[in-house]
Design a protein around this nucleic acid. Structure first.
Length: 568
DNA sequence: GCCGTTTTCGGCCCGACTGTTTTCAGTCG
């Protein structure tokens, strides 16, 4: 599967061409092609073999050749050549806020600055302010940008972003000048990580709002302040952008600031085709505004059905909207139970009863208590004797709480050879079996794939948990052959998990969508280790929505009587 | 570099804010 590699190569090319000052539209062509290939749900080699590369949006004669070269050799001569002209550090410099291709080029040509380290040194030495078009203020901004770059190289996880955004929204909501307020940007699209936080307000008193915003107690620095747009940096170095528009433009602005960029470009192209102009204030026919108050009317004028924010990535939502085949996305209320959680029996921090009380609060019909298995000593895995005691406790609780069904389960370890950590006669006695990999992450694709497939083939395994093992910020996902895993999961009626933990979100949106298309059943779990964690379910549901999942695609939207777990 | 129900050549999304400029380029989203 070389889709990702090709997309990365095209993106690198685009960045180098930017610095070289190449034709803007040529650069866009590479970016667009990268985006197209990234969002393909099939292996690019299928297109190569069928000779249908040109059917992919944004791929013409030239890029077709380049794709063929990458698929057969694993690299691209053109990129290798380009890299000779431009030091690698220069590309990294583009990630410093305030440094764009033109500035990077200028700094490289005039001062031979080749990376962020040199950039910082020159700025400190006061060498930059004397360059043409630069000045004292720019030099200071570059230094601030470098600080941001160093601290903020990582993106925020969805939970942190949600917490920060709603804290600010709650405070601003109290202002009487605020009419409407919403999160926008990638947070509203519920991307798994968010770089900065966008908030949109409608009001006819923007000055008061901007003043209040920049004076919030969380704010450390004001980066920009105007009447329609202000940006601040919080004490935790999180950038928050606030836009204020009048009420008649709120829908247009919400649409525009929600993005994605690719979705917006497509919207504007559709407007142009109809002889209209679309911007953040509305849709215009000549001088006359014909829509703008709500997103719904904006889409309607473009002959589109309303598109949910999570789908706005230009990954097929326009075509589906035109054909009326948009999915009826799963909602948090559809979730009837959580099938992966821990208790004090293994490495959890809450008792089974505490987990049950919280689950009842969330309105669940059933839950599964799936503590670790015996081999996972570090996580307090249960031996067979302890399993018996735990089962008795669950039986007791099932009698005490008649309104929720408590399943006796385990998260059984898949060892480095692909064997399960309990024998079949133990697994057979469980109400539900979740299997997962906890070690051997560095094995080859073939071996890890085989381990997962053999777990699927066990007739008592119902779910594969966190299938790619990534822990955002500390561990990359391990490579698996998704095609093979999906096939095995589908054929053995094994569900693949979306783990709702903000550091996991595994499967991610792209893999989940591929799994759905391959006919695999998905289950959304929290993997909670304390009762509070059960609330993370909304983040897993967000991944599912971004993956176009409907209620029927997800195992734990079924009522208990319809669960139909294999081996039971 | 791609693409075509105005076009196989000449287009390719749009506007706010900043800083260094006397009218605008660069960056960002």
């Amino acid at each position: 599967m070389k889709n990702k590699l090709i997309a990365e190569i095209f993106k690198d090319i685009a960045e180098i061409l930017e610095i070289k000052g190449e034709n803007f539209f040529k650069i866009r062509a590479y970016e667009k092609a990268a985006q197209s290939i990234e969002s393909l749900s099939d292996d690019i080699e299928i297109f190569v073999n069928r000779d249908t590369l040109k059917d992919i949006n944004g791929i013409g004669k030239d890029l077709e050749e380049k794709i063929r070269e990458i698929v057969s050799t694993g690299k691209l001569k053109y990129l290798e050549e380009l890299k000779k002209d431009i030091p690698e550090g220069l590309i990294e410099m583009l990630n410093v806020p305030g440094i764009g291709p033109k500035t990077a080029k200028l700094l490289y040509e005039k001062l031979d600055i080749q990376d962020v380290v040199m950039l910082e040194r020159m700025a400190h030495a006061g060498k930059i302010k004397d360059l043409p078009g630069m000045g004292k203020k720019t030099e200071e901004n570059i230094l601030t940008g470098i600080d941001l770059f160093k601290k903020g190289r990582e993106r925020l996880d969805l939970k942190t972003a949600t917490d920060v955004a709603y804290n600010i929204i709650t405070q601003l909501k109290k202002l009487k000048e605020v009419k409407n307020i919403n999160p926008a940007g990638s947070l509203r699209r519920m991307k798994e990580t968010v770089r900065d936080i966008d908030i949109l307000i409608s009001s006819n008193k923007p000055q008061e709002i901007m003043d209040a915003f920049t004076e919030l107690p969380e704010v450390k620095d004001t980066i920009a302040k105007g009447l329609t747009k202000s940006s601040v940096l919080t004490k935790d170095n999180i950038q928050v952008d606030l836009r204020v528009v009048d009420e008649l433009s709120y829908g247009a602005a919400l649409m525009y600031f929600t993005g994605s960029k690719e979705h917006n470009i497509k919207l504007r192209q559709l407007a142009i085709k109809r002889g209209l102009k679309l911007n953040e204030y509305g849709i215009f026919k000549g001088e006359k505004k014909i829509a703008g108050k709500t997103e719904e009317e904006m889409y309607k004028i473009l002959d589109l059905l309303y598109i949910e924010p999570e789908l706005r990535e230009d990954k097929g939502e326009f075509e589906a909207s035109l054909k009326d085949t948009l999915p009826d996305l799963i909602k948090i209320e559809d979730i009837k139970g959580d099938l992966h959680m821990h208790s004090t029996w293994s490495d959890g921090g809450s008792s089974i009863e505490e987990m049950i009380l919280k689950s009842r609060e969330l309105g669940y019909e059933y839950v599964a208590i799936t503590d670790h298995s015996q081999g996972l000593k570090i996580a307090g895995g249960l031996n067979v004797h302890e399993l018996d005691l735990k089962r008795k406790e669950i039986e007791k609780l099932n009698k005490k709480y008649k309104d929720i069904k408590i399943l006796f389960g385990t998260e059984v370890d898949i060892d480095s050879e692909g064997n399960l950590d309990y024998p079949d006669n133990v697994l057979r006695e469980m109400d539900i079996v979740v299997a997962a990999i906890h070690a051997g992450f560095k094995q080859s694709v073939a071996i890890i794939t085989k381990r997962i497939i053999s777990a699927c083939q066990n007739k008592y395994v119902n779910i594969i948990a966190h299938p790619t093992g990534r822990l955002w910020g500390s561990r990359n996902e391990y490579d698996i052959d998704f095609g093979e895993v999906f096939k095995a999961a589908r054929d053995t009626n094994t569900a693949l998990e979306i783990n709702s933990f903000p550091q996991r979100l595994d499967l991610n949106d792209i893999n989940t969508r591929m799994a759905k298309e391959a006919g695999v059943k998905i289950v959304i779990n929290t993997d909670s280790h304390i009762a509070q964690h059960l609330e993370m379910m909304k983040f897993g549901v967000a991944v599912a929505r971004r993956a176009w999942l409907e209620k029927k695609d997800v195992l734990n939207t079924m009522s208990f009587s319809n669960l139909k777990l294999k081996g039971k």
